[in-house]
């Protein structure tokens, strides 16, 4: 993984998470802003998949378990699309909160992936 890219992804996911939860609690239904911002978070996860495939070939090897890393990344890749489908089917305020929760989940998982890739605790 590339640390600056991870940080951008983390910050964006947190901002999107806050935005969606706030709009949901304010009673707003999902709209272009919330759906597309979670879509952007999802696209960055896909970009992370590309980075993770290419990085080992250019000397950026993971220090932790590659299996564990890919389990996180694989799960992270399906969460935003699922949340968006949910928001499109159920058009009420709580779907915005669900979108926000998905974005926060991506933030946590991205942080864990960076840990697995470059920081070993034990």
């Amino acid at each position: 993984m590339i640390l600056p890219f991870t940080i951008v992804q983390l910050v964006l996911a947190c901002v999107v998470g806050l935005l969606c939860v706030a709009l949901g609690l304010a009673g707003r239904k999902p709209n272009d802003l919330t759906v597309l911002s979670v879509g952007t978070v999802g696209l960055l996860v896909i970009a992370q998949v590309v980075v993770a495939i290419v990085a080992p070939f250019v000397g950026n090897e993971p220090t932790g378990s590659l299996l564990e890393f890919w389990m996180y990344l694989g799960t992270a890749a399906i969460i935003p699309p699922l949340a968006i489908v949910w928001a499109l089917i159920e058009r009420n305020r709580w779907s915005n909160v669900v979108l926000g929760a998905a974005a926060f989940a991506i933030a946590v998982m991205t942080w864990r992936m960076e840990q697995i890739w470059s920081v070993q605790l034990a």
Binding site: T75, W86, E90, W94, V97, V98, A101, A102
Partner: peptide
């Protein structure tokens, strides 16, 4: 329904994790 759906979503994420 309603807020219960959020509970379901958070449960789903935790279950996956």
């Amino acid at each position: 329904s309603g807020i219960g759906r959020v509970l379901v979503a958070v449960y789903a994420v935790l279950a996956m994790a």
